[in-house]
């Protein structure tokens, strides 16, 4: 299935770049927050998530 109608090759791997290029602190926060959100995604209103995120930031930035 070769495609010859479009020459550009949209790159999916560069999408995370803003995260990977962040400072270690920010990267750490983002990774932890995303994991937490992923874990609680199935809940319509995740309980205590605001406090959890606050704690992540407070732990990372000291």
């Amino acid at each position: 299935m070769k495609n010859n109608r479009q020459s550009s090759n949209p790159d999916l791997s560069s999408i995370q770049e803003p995260i990977t290029s962040a400072s270690p602190e920010v990267k750490d926060i983002i990774e932890q927050v995303l994991q937490l959100e992923k874990d609680k995604l199935y809940l319509k209103t995740p309980r205590n998530i605001n406090e959890d995120i606050l704690n992540i930031i407070k732990k990372v930035v000291q």
Binding site: I15, Q16, P18, A22, V26, I57, V61
Partner: peptide, 13 residues
């Protein structure tokens, strides 16, 4: 600032 930076970067993503 770290929270703000995280928000900006996630928006970029």
């Amino acid at each position: 600032s770290a929270a703000q930076e995280s928000i900006i970067r996630l928006n970029e993503v």
